[in-house]
Every structure is written in C-alpha cells, then in structure tokens.
Design a protein around this nucleic acid. Structure first.
Lengths: 231, 231
DNA sequence: GCAAAAGTGTTACAAATACACCCATGC
DNA sequence: GCATGGGTGTATTTGTAACACTTTTGC
C-alpha cells in the first residue's frame, strides 16, 4: 500500500459565512485579523482543520465559530471548496467553506484572542475582505437566496415567536424583491408548519400581529408525507 | 507571518462521478483498482491533487479523467468535499468530488496504467464501491436530478442532433418519473433553445422524428434577457 | 372616530395537465 | 390500409397575481 507521504499535501482551512438578521437587514459576521497575512483586515471567521485530531469539517466549523465568536448551535451547511492557487500568500491553502444562520440577539458576540475585533456588518455594506473571501461571500449569498425558497431555514434568523409580517419582511429582505402581502400569507398558512401561540406583543401603535412558532415536528411529518416546501 | 508547516495537513484527492447515457439508461464510469487499498474493487476515477504544481481542482479532475479513462472536454462541476476521518484506510484523506456529463459514444474508454479495468455501469445496477464512493455517488445522483431541471446540461449526454422523443425519454430516465408527452413537447419548444436541422434519421419502421441541436448562443442570449430555464 | 397595520375574500389571469386527434412512415 | 410512433389543438383544472374589504389597535 503506497504511503500518503509520497504526495505533497495542501493546507486546509475552514471558513464560515455567518448570516444574521437585525434592523431589517441581513448581516454578516466578520473578524478583523490580528496577524499576517491580512493583519487589520476584515475576513470570514476561519481556521485550520485539525488533522491530527481527526476533526471533521463540521466539528472544525463549530469550534472556530465558538472560539472566535462565542456562537454555538446553529444551522450549518457546507458551501463549496475554494482552490485558487494564489488565494493565500503563505502557500497552497484550500478553503472548505461553510455557511451558518444565526439569530444575533441570542448571542453576545465575543472577540477571541486571534482577532482585533469581531463585528456584524450589513451585507449591503461590507468592508473590503482579505483572501478570496469576497468570492466566498458572493457564493454564500447566492446559496442562501436559493435555499430559503426550498427549506424552512429563515426561522433560524428570527426571535421566536414571530409574526407573519416579520417573516414577510425577512423574505423580502433576503430575496431583495417584493412579495404580495396577501399571497405571502396564504402560501405560509397553506404550508401549515407554524404553531400559533396565544401571546401578543403590544406596545406598538397599531393592531398587534398574531405570533407563531415554527413547528419542526409538523414540518418533518409533512415532508415524510411528500410535501415540498417551496415559497 | 506564521508558517503553514505548524499545522498538520491532510491528503487531498479529486474523485469524479462520470455520468453517461446509453441503451436508455444512465450509466456511471467506474474503475477497478489495481493497487491497495481496495485493490480489485470498483471505485470512482480519482487521484491526488498535485499540490506542488499548483494544480486547481478542475485541472486535476480533467487530468485524472484523461489519464484514467481517455475522456476530455466535458461538463464538469464541483459536487461536495467529503471528510469522514475513516474514509481512507491510509490516513486522513479528503475527497473533493466533481461530477461530469459525458456522451459515451464520443469516447472510447481506455484503461489507464493504474487500473485493471474501466467500465460503464448502469446506475441502477452498480457493483459494491470502495472507500465512501457509494455516498459520493448518491450525492451526485441527487445533484444531477436537481440540476437537469434548471440547466440545459442533458444535451451533453446525447448525440447531436437528437429528437424530442429522445430528449423526453432521457428526462424520464434521469428523473425516474413520467412526463406527459404533449406537455413535454410544449415546454421544450417554448424555451426556444433548439435549432431544427433538416436532416432525418430513417430506417426506423415508423415516421422519423424531427431532429434538433442545442443552440447554446440562443440559450445564452435568452438567459441574459432574464429567461429562467426550468423544465 | 381616525389612521395605520393586521388579517381575509374573491376575482382575473396564466400555467400546468389531460386528453383527443391528425400525420408520416414501413410493411 | 393499418399499425405505430411523431406531431399538434384544445378544454379543464389548478395555481398565481392582483386588488378590495374588514378588523383591531393607539391616540
């Protein structure tokens, strides 16, 4: 059996595109690097895969998220693996990228040791990014826009319970296009994956909206019966 | 600037899922390994990324395809990166997988030095596969089924020109479900991405079908004008 | 009672589906 | 001329889009 050491190996990092939602805008969590390369530049929170510990990508993504930002227990999915030979000035470094959906109000972002600062940015107003991270972000945004149409993942971004108008605005914000109010209502309600809660949030000056929670069990059983989600 | 050598590195292979279409069935190109691990077992055609040559994934995928099968110039797209720590008995080996669509009649498959044999298999009747390649194939099949609905890639599998009934059968085969004949016709024709050729293929016992070619330029210009493909 | 946002009913139109019919060919 | 698969017309059903109306709240 041929040894693996006959072949040169690349370095492998995991980079996380972390989506949040606040002030009616989608936001991205970025990290200002303390060390070279790209010191004092904003980048995606990332780090090297711990090969000697037999760490999986997902474990690494979660570890990095926790270490560098203090965020745990989120929706996480592999995005793409980036291979441009010159993407890292230190040498050949592959980036296995993941994207995550986080409710920013549930976490106090903390800045880990390796960073100057960790901060949410409005996705329409990102600073220049180090490495090829702008490319990674672009791919993640496209994936997100596509994914929300087919899977009920937006609830990860919202406080629960939430109202239909809030959900409506969220979809319009992510997809950057208007949805007819009445028809959005009907689509969501026909899916029958929300559980109404009998509390209200008042204090607003207008009629308080009904509040709902995502009913994951119901969703799963509908999926098993052949429902297709589709917004 | 910290050295990359402070971090252990994994080995990285590229594995290709190669789809063909013949005898009204989708087929997969597999390679019977000569060497350990998994000697004399069928696997996806794959190989190590040439890190010292600054090879990209796509270059590697094409090189491996050519070396091990003689196939060149095909539709190729990154599928996923597999990371199970025990997926290779030699140690930590990541697999960046690609999938390709090939017209088998355009290529004589040749068996490269490192293989006992290279052969097409009906995708409904695959042999046991080495490594985690069965998992990779499953993911590729799902991707293919989804992709053909949104992008005009099935033409890569067919001899050109082709008839609408042939295209019809191909879609039914890939998606494993019937499409109403008339409605399939209308959908394809309304897309307006085929160029009719005025040759015929007779010799069959029945009325010969009209023949078409995929008009890529027309497709691109329609896409630029906001068409969405969708079968 | 008025303004504003939440929630609901219904119509008009477009698209998917189902089915029927005609056409071209070989024997 | 008849069997067979290719090609086309169209009615029906379904789903989407659009718009109008009612309800609930704070002031």
């Amino acid at each position: 059996m041929e040894s693996l050491d006959n072949f040169p190996k690349p370095s492998v990092t995991i980079d996380n595109v972390i989506f949040g939602y606040q002030h009616n805008q989608v936001s991205l969590l970025l990290l200002n690097r303390k060390e070279e390369p790209f010191a004092n530049t904003w980048t995606l929170p990332g780090g090297f895969l711990r090969v000697n510990e037999f760490e999986t990508f997902e474990q690494a993504a979660k570890r990095i998220l926790m270490d560098k930002t203090g965020i745990a227990d989120v929706f996480l999915e592999q995005l793409y693996t980036f291979d441009a030979p010159d993407r890292d000035p230190r040498g050949r470094v592959l980036s296995v990228s993941y994207y995550a959906l986080v409710n920013p109000t549930k976490y106090d972002v903390r800045t880990g040791d390796a960073a100057n600062e960790v901060q949410w940015f409005d996705w329409k107003n990102l600073p220049p990014l180090g490495f090829d991270h702008a490319v990674i972000v672009e791919k993640a945004v496209n994936r997100l826009k596509n994914k929300v149409l087919w899977q009920p993942i937006v609830f990860e971004l919202l406080d629960s319970p939430f109202s239909i108008p809030e959900l409506h605005t969220l979809y319009e914000t992510i997809l950057d296009k208007p949805f007819e109010r009445r028809n959005f209502y009907k689509r969501i309600m026909e899916l029958d994956i929300l559980r109404k809660v009998d509390i209200r949030r008042d204090g607003g000056r207008k009629r308080p909206a009904d509040l709902f929670e995502f009913d994951e069990e119901k969703y799963n059983s509908l999926i098993n019966n052949g429902l297709s989600f589709k917004i």
